[in-house]
Write a protein that binds this DNA or RNA. Structure first.
Lengths: 248, 248
DNA sequence: ACAAAAGTGTTTTTTATACACCCATGC
DNA sequence: GCATGGGTGTATAAAAAACACTTTTGT
């Protein structure tokens, strides 16, 4: 963001009245379906106005005494059961007019959304309380028009996912504790696209980083030579933290 | 962030009452003093409780109808006059208890802080309305204990600055429209440290990226061979946007 | 035997790093 | 003329990219 115009202090200072807010948390929850090679986002169908019957990001309003992160986890827990997940704050959206309930003839209060970004493993994530088909996984490149400014939020999250995968080990938060290198590769392929890297180069680069340890256990998935199971060695990774490193 | 514990939906859903918020914007405003080789942060001394007489990040509460970004710009404009600046949202801090005014015997309302990160040019930034020395530049590695959780916010911003400099052209938003390559180098040295890169390598890497155009105009700063003035070519940069590229 | 998947190695190209060295100016 | 900062080039090391090839399983 760049401005060339001179900044001038606002003339009226004390006279202006402050805005009252409710703070919501909206989650962009991704999962990766390796078998069908697709990235999915969890959406919820709204059954109330505004935007009744529109799909939206799962979210909630922050309660008294509740931290933002707790609110994000709560929303997550209400929708799916996931053992392994990665969660981080994404961005805050608070422009006036982003929620129709802001109108004076409605609640007359501002709604600020602190968005969170989550990554869960598709195979392990079960949608809970699914009685009315109001919660569903959507393919990330085939999303309907969403409620509020949730398209924008989703877009923001999708970019974060693609970028973060390249320099941060978040993939290993989502993979099971023991995994084959090919599973890692497939995960990367699904998110970044088929031709982001050759398998053998990806493989050697990843191993050279030195935080994946071979358990020695072999596992056979159908035909082909059995693969070694690896696991993420968080102690070996610790010194690499904060250092610039690339996973691609 | 990683959790291995099972997520369980909260039992009580509708009964809990929602939190009411005021939303504040706190700015981490950096400037780079190339001549003295230091990175500075703009701080303001609080003259009200809570944290009276503590130094804090310049901030303000968001007004009715005001966007978050506008609030950030307004705070900025009240403190300094800067022609060139870079501004972006940093992170939101909203944990319960982060502001003493949250107590029931005080205002009894939550205060959420959406922090913004700004970079301005020291030479061009004049502190305005400076009558009581309540606003000052502090060296980033010599900061007093700040009010609220502003230490944490500042830390977050400082990391963002160091990281973002390496892959994003924000330096050119802060430099004057025409600059010498040595000025760019000094800016990078001041922020990232002397030995982040050799000058001639930095130089050739930067030029190879192709978005700096030589104006042909030479300028002489004291002794030594006159340097070429370059300028940032935003058209040449446009296609590089979103692409992974390194400036270091 | 053969396809399929795992895993290794080799060659080529590109990029990073560390310098050495020439250029133009002020004093 | 020589110190000072500007600018170019080069030799070496390291990493990325492309791809050929071996190994071990299921069928």
């Amino acid at each position: 963001m760049k401005t060339n115009s001179k900044l001038k202090p606002n003339a009226n200072s004390k006279s202006e009245s402050l805005a009252d807010f409710k703070v919501g948390v909206d989650n962009v929850i991704f999962s990766v379906d390796i078998t069908y090679n697709r990235v999915l986002v969890l959406l919820r169908k709204r059954n109330n106005d505004p935007f009744k019957n529109y799909w939206s990001l799962p979210g909630t309003l922050v309660r008294q005494g509740e931290s933002l992160t707790d609110a994000a986890y709560r929303t997550l827990a209400e929708k799916i059961q996931a053992d392994n997940l990665y969660l981080e704050q994404l961005y805050s959206f608070g422009n006036p007019g982003r929620d129709p309930r802001e109108n004076p003839d409605s609640y007359g209060i501002r709604y600020l959304s602190v968005s969170y970004f989550a990554l869960v493993r598709y195979e392990e994530s079960k949608i809970i309380n699914q009685t009315d088909y109001s919660i569903a996984w959507y393919r990330v490149n085939d999303i309907p028009k969403l409620a509020f400014d949730h398209d924008k939020i989703l877009d923001y999250g999708w970019n974060r996912l693609k970028n973060k995968l390249q320099y941060s080990p978040l993939a290993f938060d989502v993979l099971p504790t023991e995994f084959t290198l090919n599973e890692v590769y497939k995960l990367y392929c699904t998110i970044l696209g088929e031709n982001f890297s050759d398998y053998s180069n990806f493989r050697s680069r990843l191993l050279k980083l030195g935080f994946l340890s071979d358990t020695g256990v072999k596992v056979s998935r159908g035909a082909g030579r059995p693969a070694s199971l690896y696991k993420f060695d968080s102690e070996a990774f610790a010194p690499l933290k904060d250092k610039p490193l690339l996973f691609i």
